[in-house]
Design a protein around this nucleic acid. Structure first.
Lengths: 152, 152
DNA sequence: TCCCAATGCTTCGAATCCGAAGCACCAATG
DNA sequence: CATTGGTGCTTCGGATTCGAAGCATTGGGA
């Protein structure tokens, strides 16, 4: 289900503003941040994404003039990303269609009680996943004797 | 939430059997198919994935000896993919850990009623999305540097 | 003051992904 | 039987992805 929805959302973002899903998330996060700025690490915390991928997408945003990047004032190691006026403009262009897609595909078949239940249940799952320590090792159960030798 | 879960699932599949998420879905689909075979198109219907990506992953499975590919008997255009004994073995190796991840991350904070609600609500959403015609067009674009649409 | 592990981010290489174009085959038409 | 349009899959080129390695800065002692 989430794959289907994700796919439709990405299509709309691409058509309406040439944005990838991650780029949209980054712009939206920046738009909500005080001053329209955030460090790379803070962005990464809000988006399930690799650091290197974040660097790549931030470069693309900068290249398109939707955001700027500069070394952090407080910590010379850090990079501060800031949304530009043009970035906000694109975000505003794209947002109504984004909401429309969610309305059409996700919320149409649901009533208020359904939505509340979803929010409750999925919210609990999310909190649980965030609180669980990163998997150190997968459960090592075996069920077939013919497992091929494998170098992980 | 789904991104977090997806990420953990992919990690387990990779560690336990060197499988990508798609490869796992393909093997699982084949394993449930009569004769362990299916046409590419039938596989694509069950997996939200591009055709070319499906070809790529099927080639990888063939290269690892987990599946075979042969032109369809009925329709020379079609390709029939079949799971091998080794493919089933890997699937059996990976499956218990897969279920364990879902149990730990997804089902732990939920009770039976939660699960039933989720299945009902998300099932309806899925059916709705599958029944909706593919988006014909996104809401009209706006050019930059103008007032954002007040429409949502 | 001078180290040194830890931190924040980027670069690098290789793998994976997608859409568009291409190839081969099927089915319907005349 | 030749033609035409449609279908099924692959190939191609370019974009995106990730983890590992690299670079520079920081903070906490010795």
């Amino acid at each position: 289900m989430s794959s289907l929805l994700r796919h439709s959302v990405e299509q709309q973002l691409q058509e309406a503003g040439g944005l990838s899903y991650v780029q949209f998330q980054l712009l939206a996060t920046l738009g909500d941040s005080p001053g329209g700025s955030a460090r790379m690490t803070d962005l990464a915390d809000g988006v399930v994404y690799s650091r290197s991928g974040l660097t790549y997408q931030a470069q693309l945003l900068e290249k398109r003039g939707l955001a700027t990047r500069a070394p952090s004032v407080e910590d010379e190691r850090g990079t501060t990303v800031t949304i530009t006026a043009e970035g906000r403009s694109v975000l505003d262009d794209v947002f109504p269609g984004h909401v429309a897609v969610l309305g059409d595909l996700l919320f149409t078949p649901l009533d208020g009680s359904d939505v509340a239940q979803l929010a409750d249940v999925l919210g609990r799952v999310r909190d649980h996943m965030r609180s669980v320590p990163p998997r150190s090792a997968a459960p090592r159960r075996r069920s077939r004797a013919t497992a091929p030798p494998r170098d992980a």
